[in-house]
Design a protein around this nucleic acid. Structure first.
Lengths: 192, 192
DNA sequence: CGATTCTTTGAAAACAGTCAATCTGTGTGG
DNA sequence: CCACACAGATTGACTGTTTTCAAAGAATCG
């Protein structure tokens, strides 16, 4: 299963076989059943996670008990709570598996070891971090500038196939609208 | 003026005097008049920018010609378009000065040189990047989970003082609501 | 001081949210 | 393998919020 991760890494950076061995030595492959929690709010998060297969979601729960999905992580994406990891604070988020999934977990200490001893790896992680940051800014732009319908259409194109894998109410949550509104929007789009 | 930047850097990382000299040698201090553009959409962005004094805003313009503020950068903040910088693509954003401002500009090549030759600097930038990323995720959370009023109150506390420096219609834009709505929300809050 | 831009206010319309009921599909235990 | 239960999705009626458009009232800048 690790081969998926190796493929990802070696496609994105010039990692030698030796270097890969070092990386592989700190990788923990973990299977997750649908619905299984990886993190619950209040806990401390200490890993970096790479999704090999399946789909995870990270979400917060507000005072009214409503869930708000911040992120979906599918194959070849990273997941985790960087905030808790970086500041060593209790997490505000929950992470669970939407599908049966396989992930690679790397402990914070191990991960830091990798970035300090392997410059190529460090550079790779940097690029990924920047890419994620950019995507995040992009999302802010779409959320504040688009109507509900535009946001949904944008979701369909920016995350192709995801709409068929993820329950609709989670998509609605991700877009910041209610399931009912999403349902009506879909009907409206159909008519066109 | 560079001293502000030096203070910021040395407070956050163990940078020696020598190392600082190297950093300072690639810094370009630039004054900006209120309203002055730093970047307009379609252009390529090639700098990292640190705000010494004043306030910048980054915003997009949609098909209807409406501006959407993605970010305000005040003293001791970073600014720029990381997306254009990283991918070497034309920028989707505009950046201009809301107040007369002073910024430090570092060219991409110089910045990369700093991060590769000065490990401490690299690590500092990494931490800042992660912090920015986290803040960005945090903002997504507030936008999708809060009502207009909550978002405004949250803005008041998370960016203290800013509301008095920045025109209201820009704050409205930042929050993803119309100026009229913001005006009414303020009145409503006053009454409490 | 005049002109322009920003902010506020009002009224109507569009939009999204809430609550409740019904429909659908999936998975489980008998 | 079927029937049932249950969670998720849709629909309708209603409510509440936000936008839109237009106009008047501040504030700011040259």
């Amino acid at each position: 299963m690790l081969s998926v991760f190796k493929k990802y890494i070696t496609e994105k950076a010039a990692i030698s076989e030796n270097e890969w061995e070092i990386i592989a030595s700190v990788c923990i492959v973990k299977k997750l059943r649908k619905q299984q929690f990886l993190l619950q709010q209040g806990e401390f998060w200490r890993y970096n996670i790479f999704v090999i297969e399946g789909c995870l979601r990270r979400y917060s729960i507000d005072d009214k008990g409503i869930e708000h999905v911040i992120q979906f992580s599918t194959e070849n994406w990273w997941a985790g709570d960087r905030q808790s990891l970086l500041n060593e604070t209790p997490s505000k988020y929950n992470i669970d598996a939407i599908e049966n999934s396989v992930v690679v977990m790397i402990r914070k200490e191990d991960f830091d070891m990798l970035t300090t001893t392997l410059p190529v790896f460090n550079e790779l992680i940097n690029r990924i971090l920047q890419g994620g940051f950019n995507a995040s800014q992009e999302r802010i732009n779409t959320i504040i500038s688009m109507t509900a319908e535009q946001k949904y259409l944008n979701f369909l194109t920016s995350r192709p196939g995801l709409a068929n894998r993820v329950p609709r109410h989670m998509i609605a949550s991700y877009l910041g609208i209610t399931p009912e509104t999403l349902s009506r929007i879909k009907k409206q789009i159909m008519r066109k």
